[in-house]
């Protein structure tokens, strides 16, 4: 479903070249829940941006649902992003001036669905995250956890190939974080593929598969459990 081979991403300034990703390869199959972890500066965000087609890369290949992403222009990438990927951001990124209904509506508008279809999907998605009663509320009237659930509804409404979550619980307290995590797990169990980028090892452990990025490459050893368990205890 998603296949990256030898992806290389270099940031150039006048003075230095930074290799954010070097020979990065990854394959994700349908239905998986993959957590991508790594220390800050490891290339996690670059991985996220490239996976989400928010950024281009220098070399290597990225096949998404069989399509070679590197061959696409900006408009085509936007379209693909809209159809295949459901984004969940650390800071929710809801549009403050729009109510929940209109927020979930945003990606559907760009998809060009009919009004009826959009309505069905929005109501459905909000139902799934348990917020259908608060459709007319503004984001500022909700708690952080609720806001993130709206963001998840927004990601789900387009029925994407996979959800791409960036530290989905990073801005939440532990109770809310747990609830959001539970929701993601439920969604995964219902068949949606999830790729989650996080620095939180405990969260990562709850995923089926963990990928650890160090220095722009997938690290050989995958588990740091004992250390963290000690820390947690």
């Amino acid at each position: 479903m998603l296949q990256m081979n030898n992806i290389k991403k270099i940031f150039r300034t006048d003075l230095v070249e930074t290799h954010a990703l070097r020979d990065f390869s990854l394959q994700v199959e349908e239905g998986e829940f993959v957590a991508v972890t790594g220390p800050s500066g490891s290339g996690k965000t670059t991985f996220l941006n490239i996976t989400g087609m928010l950024e281009t890369f220098n070399s290597g290949s990225y096949l998404l649902d069989g399509q070679d992403v590197s061959q696409l222009n900006d408009n085509q990438r936007s379209k693909l992003r809209n159809e295949k990927i459901g984004f969940i951001f650390q800071s929710f990124n809801l549009i403050p001036d729009l109510n929940l209904y209109d927020n979930v509506d945003v990606p559907l508008r760009y998809r060009g669905f009919s009004a009826k279809e959009r309505k069905r999907r929005i109501e459905n998605a909000l139902e799934r995250v348990g917020l259908s009663a608060r459709m007319k509320h503004l984001p500022s009237q909700l708690s952080g956890g609720q806001q993130q659930r709206v963001a998840i509804a927004r990601a789900l409404a387009g029925e994407p190939l996979f959800l791409l979550a960036d530290e989905p619980t990073g801005n939440l307290d532990s109770l809310m974080a747990r609830q959001v995590m539970q929701l993601l797990e439920e969604i995964n169990q219902q068949g949606t593929t999830i790729i989650m980028v996080t620095h939180d090892a405990e969260l990562a452990r709850r995923a089926q598969r963990n990928i650890h990025i160090v220095d722009g490459q997938v690290s050989d050893y995958q588990q740091l459990q004992p250390v963290l368990e000690v820390a947690e205890a």
Binding site: N75, S78, K79, R81, V106, Y110, R111
Partner: peptide
């Protein structure tokens, strides 16, 4: 965010 959610430049 809109761009990430699939809006084109023209949008």
């Amino acid at each position: 965010t809109r761009r990430a959610l699939g809006a084109t430049k023209l949008d």
